[in-house]
């Protein structure tokens, strides 16, 4: 590199911001007031969206990128990174979000997809996070340029079962790859429907090449600590905070449980008297067509 030359938008810089968010909690917010509560509670970033997933479920219809004016207000209100959601495949929403100065774009199944193709994320300077149900899906997204992965879980339910299932599946598949012989890589790539270069990389390192957070249904401090003990790098909380009785108290408790995830006494202490958690929807009561995790694959 030449002296004084500065390179922006590199893989290292994109993946690097996700590294800084590790061990932290990223909270969904719909306005500046919620963003300020989240920052004061110790959130390491906030996610701007029009409605939290529980309200998107209740409201129905097409869910789109938030009004840019809301996102701008949130950016102005906090000093922590601001993420924002675009629809799957909607590269113009992503271009708009980049122009607003958001720090990460979530190409998210919580919004209504516009294409069976995902966005070519290499074409952007701003980094992307994408959801995945298994290793193959995670590696396809990374192949498209995602710099961070999260489990899909089942958003807006307050039921953590799907996030657990997705994390376990990824862990099992990564473990399986590390046992394979180099001659088996192409068949493994075929089976996972993933780029062989990434499959080889994971087989060697025994981990995803990017940071992996838990998302989708996390509602309590114990849920957050459970996902951390299963090996996630950090936590997204969607409806869990601002659909509960006392958002600021619950937000603080989830942040502390994420730091002290191996300390049951501390988790117990922060879990006391939090008020009602979000009401929630049992996954078994959802039809497959109502499941957001089946959008994009």
């Amino acid at each position: 590199m030449a002296a004084n030359e500065q390179l922006t938008g590199t893989e290292q810089v994109k993946r690097g911001l996700a590294e800084m968010l590790k061990g932290g909690v990223i909270m969904d917010v719909v306005n500046a007031e919620q963003a300020v509560i989240a920052e004061a509670a110790g959130a390491c970033a906030v996610m701007s969206l029009e409605r939290v997933p529980a309200d998107i479920r209740a409201h129905g219809g097409v869910a789109r990128m938030a009004d840019p004016a809301r996102t701008e207000e949130i950016i102005a209100a906090v000093s922590i990174p601001v993420m924002a959601k675009s629809r799957i495949g909607h590269f113009v929403e992503a271009q708009v979000l980049q122009s607003l100065g958001v720090d990460y774009i979530d190409e998210s199944e919580v919004l209504t997809p516009v294409d069976t193709n995902h966005i070519d994320k290499h074409a952007f300077t701003v980094p992307f996070v994408c959801g995945a149900k298994d290793l193959g899906e995670a590696l396809r997204r990374i192949g498209e340029g995602a710099a961070m992965i999260r489990t899909k879980g089942e958003p807006g339910t307050g039921d953590v079962v799907e996030a657990v299932r997705h994390m376990r599946k990824m862990n099992t598949q990564i473990g399986w790859l590390t046992t394979l012989d180099p001659n088996e890589m192409m068949n493994a790539a075929k089976e996972l429907r993933a780029p062989i270069s990434l499959v080889q990389e994971v087989a060697l390192s025994g981990r995803l090449p990017v940071v992996n957070f838990a998302a989708g249904g996390i509602a309590t401090p114990s849920d957050a600590a459970l996902m951390m003990q299963l090996g996630c790098d950090g936590i997204f909380v969607g409806s869990g905070v601002f659909k509960s009785d006392e958002p600021d108290v619950r937000a603080r408790a989830i942040v502390e449980a994420t730091t002290f995830y191996r300390d049951p006494e501390k988790i117990g202490k922060v879990s006391r008297n939090l008020g009602e958690a979000m009401v929630g929807i049992n996954i078994d009561e959802l039809q497959s067509i109502e499941m957001m995790q089946n959008r994009g694959s």
């Binding site: 030359e5 390179l7 922006t8 810089v13 100065g101 958001v102």
Partner: peptide, 17 residues
């Protein structure tokens, strides 16, 4: 000064003496 160089869009790599 926090975020002195700007937002994530402006994050960069460089060689330093």
């Amino acid at each position: 000064r926090r975020n002195a160089f700007g937002r994530q869009f402006d994050s960069f790599e460089a060689d330093l003496e």
